[in-house]
């Protein structure tokens, strides 16, 4: 039996954390770890790097882009695929995020099926 892909979800909203975890586990069958902040995410990645990081953009303390930058700054995790999950809609904001060159950007709200298929796409080495 192969080990399911591990996803690290970072979001300050506990409801979103729970829903995303359930969707990914129930629909996609992934192993999901949820944390509420960038610092925690960095600690987890340090300890036990996941296959993919789903990163909220607007978070108190360390924001999503800052967290991504921090990950990139660590040589060993520079290539870790990071997908932004964001409720932002403005074109300028999206362009700003795109400039950080994440593996993908998924807009909230999303269908569970879409989320799972996009995650799979990225895990398969693609972008979304």
């Amino acid at each position: 039996m192969t080990r399911p892909p591990t996803i690290l979800h970072v979001d300050d909203d506990p409801a979103i954390r729970e829903i995303v975890r359930l969707l990914l586990e129930k629909i996609g069958g992934f192993a999901v770890t949820s944390v509420a902040s960038g610092q925690e995410a960095l600690a987890i990645v340090q300890r036990q790097p996941p296959d993919l990081v789903l990163l909220d953009v607007m978070m108190p303390g360390m924001s999503g882009p800052e967290t991504l930058q921090a990950l990139r700054d660590r040589q060993e995790h520079a290539s870790l695929p990071v997908v932004f999950l964001t409720a932002k809609v403005l074109q300028s904001e999206m362009e700003q995020l795109a400039r950080l060159d994440p593996a993908g950007i998924i807009q909230k709200p999303f269908r569970g099926e879409d989320l799972v298929s996009k995650v799979r796409q990225v895990l398969a080495g693609g972008r979304c």
């Binding site: 359930l22 969707l23 409720a87 809609v89 709200p109 999303f110 569970g112």
Partner: peptide
């Protein structure tokens, strides 16, 4: 938009 979408994400997901 952000504040509307976040709860909507949870609602729709649930």
């Amino acid at each position: 938009s952000h504040e509307l979408r976040t709860p909507l994400t949870a609602i729709l997901g649930s």
